[in-house]
Computed example of a mutant assay.
Amino acid sequence: MLNYVFWNNKGGTGKTSLAFQTICRYAFQNPTMRVLAIDVCPQANLSELFLGGLDNNGSRNLLERQGLVPRCSIGGYFQLRLPAPFTTPTFSIRDYFTKPSTYNSNIPTNIDLLAGDPLLELQANAINTLANTQIPGTDTWIEIIDWLKDALDQVRDEYDIVFIDTNPSFSIYTQIAISTANRLILPVMADDSSRRAIQNAFSLVYGLKLPSDIYSKYSFATKLESANRSLPQVHIVAKNRITQYMGSASAYAAVLRSIEEDVSSLIHSNPEMFTFSSVKQGIVEIRDFQTTGVVAFARGCPFYTQPSGKLTIGTQRVQVKEDYRQNCIDAIDDIVKKL
């Protein structure tokens, strides 16, 4: 079972929008594949999209799921684990899943969802404290890190592929998500902060270029590898929303080239961190979704099911051009082809 995680510790790189469209398109093109989407983000934007988006009661539907007993979300599952964090209780993770197609007819029926939850922020301090508890003979950090792995072990034979969306941080619940994945999809923007974000990402996940050996002892990579656990490999670098940065003379184009050079250098020095052996194999360019994206996310609608023409969003009439919509589909297809 392949587990993909969408992550960058920099905000605004388009993780959730790319995750939503990619998951839906993959499921649509592979109707016999069983797909699980996991939203490890307190904002739960991915879950709201799956459950209807802004215009189709996505928020209300998510609150309904969170109001059940047990609470049908990642927060509900973590709430179960908190009282006895270092032992695995008797539970069925299926009790926490949602079938988004029952709320949103735009979603393929072969997708299940473990929804996001604002409880994650409240739980983070407690989880982090527990992970740093000293108990002789127990690796408390790895016991906490394995919470999501414990859950997926129950359904390993029921799903073919798992997609995990994360928030822009490296908090303890984000580390739980990343440690569960075997492949990393890293969206970046065409700005210098995204170049720094890539460098930061490799420091945080792989322990590269840390400022001091002091940090190495406590790094995510060191602790995971000391427990004989493997790190996820970078599978796709998605250069996102590049439309406004086009042009060979553009300073942004220079940044994009610098990002490619950085990735190429890392492939040469640390090939084990990648599933690809050249930049061309691993980088996908995604142009800005513009109005098509705004409409799709307001309606909780994959691009391939979204109509073109004049549409109503809230109280506004907007125009979705068919050629723009097709460009968006083509961009997502470029990602899906690499999965």
Rank of each mutant, 00 (worst) to 15 (best):
M1L: 07
Y4I: 14
K10Q: 08
G14H: 02
G14I: 07
T16W: 03
L18C: 09
L18R: 06
Q21D: 07
C24W: 02
C24I: 04
C24Q: 10
Y26M: 08
A27W: 00
F28R: 12
F28N: 12
Q29C: 07
D39S: 09
V40W: 00
P42W: 09
Q43M: 06
A44I: 08
L51E: 00
G53M: 06
N57W: 05
G58D: 03
R60G: 08
R60V: 06
L62W: 03
L62I: 08
L63C: 03
L63W: 05
G67K: 05
P70H: 04
R71Y: 02
G76S: 06
F78M: 08
R81A: 05
P83G: 01
P83W: 03
P89T: 07
T90K: 13
R94Y: 06
T98S: 09
T98C: 11
S101N: 13
T102P: 00
N104Q: 00
N106I: 01
P108L: 02
I111V: 11
L114F: 04
A115L: 11
A126H: 01
I127N: 05
A131E: 01
Q134C: 09
T138H: 08
D146T: 14
D146A: 03
K149L: 08
K149T: 15
L152E: 00
L152P: 03
Q154D: 03
Q154P: 05
V155E: 03
R156V: 13
R156A: 11
F163C: 04
T166P: 00
T166S: 04
T166A: 01
N167H: 14
Y173N: 08
A177N: 05
N182Y: 04
R183L: 09
S193N: 14
S193I: 10
R196P: 00
R196C: 03
A197F: 05
I198H: 01
V205H: 00
V205E: 00
Y206C: 00
G207N: 11
L208I: 13
K209A: 12
P211L: 08
S212H: 13
Y215K: 07
Y218H: 11
T222K: 15
K223D: 01
H235F: 10
I236P: 01
V237I: 15
V237W: 06
R241I: 02
Q244T: 13
Y245N: 11
S248D: 12
A249M: 14
V255M: 06
R257D: 14
S264K: 07
S265M: 11
S269K: 14
F276M: 10
V279Y: 03
E285A: 12
D288Q: 13
D288R: 06
A296T: 02
A296Y: 00
T305C: 07
K310M: 09
T315A: 12
T315K: 15
R317Y: 09
Q319S: 12
R325P: 03
R325Y: 01
D333A: 04
L339Q: 04
